[in-house]
């Protein structure tokens, strides 16, 4: 048993996918182990509520496991898995929209988001032009990304965190290549501007 486990750990991701598609649950488990960090981090930056991150991660991983046979080419795993993550995220946004008392995802959030970021920074007594010691840079970046309007948030996460190409992002978000290009550029500028005084 032990030696078998080591073997799975040694396999590359494409081989693991191939085996998982042939109902090899051990391979599937190993694949999830590798992918979970990515999925978790993605939701950590996308989700407005920290407490949702774990549930979303679990659900996305389950969807990946359940649908692994529908992936035609193992080389496309990254982009395929991110499509599942993105769809789940959009589903969640829609659900939250229907609930009252939640922050809307429309362009108005730009203000809300900025406010959130400012509140966070003020709460921790961070002043502009000073390195904010009370807060970890990671937390500031997270608040910054979270404060971006919806379409910018998703593209910057897919690009910088997941390393998807513009074409893959266009497919995932169902938008044109030009839109992706300008959104990423604007997301970077916005983030840089809102965080420049704090990091």
């Amino acid at each position: 048993m032990g030696s078998q486990k080591i073997q799975y750990k040694k396999l590359n991701i494409e081989k693991l996918i191939e085996l998982a598609q042939q109902d090899d649950l051990k391979a599937l488990e190993e694949l999830i182990k590798i992918e979970q960090k990515n999925v978790f981090a993605t939701f950590a930056y996308l989700s407005n509520k920290k407490e949702d991150v774990s549930d979303l991660t679990q659900e996305a991983l389950l969807r990946i496991a359940k649908n692994i046979k529908t992936l035609k080419n193992p080389k496309n795993f990254k982009s395929w898995a991110n499509q599942i993550v993105t769809h789940l995220y959009y589903d969640e946004l829609r659900k939250n929209l229907r609930k009252p008392n939640t922050i809307s995802i429309d362009s108005e959030t730009e203000e809300n988001g900025d406010l959130m970021l400012k509140n966070l920074l003020q709460d921790k007594k961070c002043k502009p032009n000073e390195k904010c010691l009370a807060l970890e840079i990671e937390e500031i970046i997270r608040a910054g990304i979270n404060s971006l309007p919806e379409p910018f948030k998703i593209v910057i996460v897919l690009r910088e965190l997941q390393g998807l190409s513009y074409e893959e992002i266009a497919n995932t978000t169902k938008s044109s290549l030009g839109t992706v290009k300008s959104r990423i550029a604007r997301a970077r500028t916005k983030l840089q501007q809102s965080l420049k005084n704090y990091i």
Partner: peptide, 20 residues
């Protein structure tokens, strides 16, 4: 991003397989 990734302590793999 790398820091966030390394912070994941929970292992979801077993739960995922069980749920499946």
């Amino acid at each position: 991003f790398n820091k966030t990734k390394s912070k994941l302590k929970k292992d979801y793999s077993e739960d995922t397989i069980n749920n499946l």
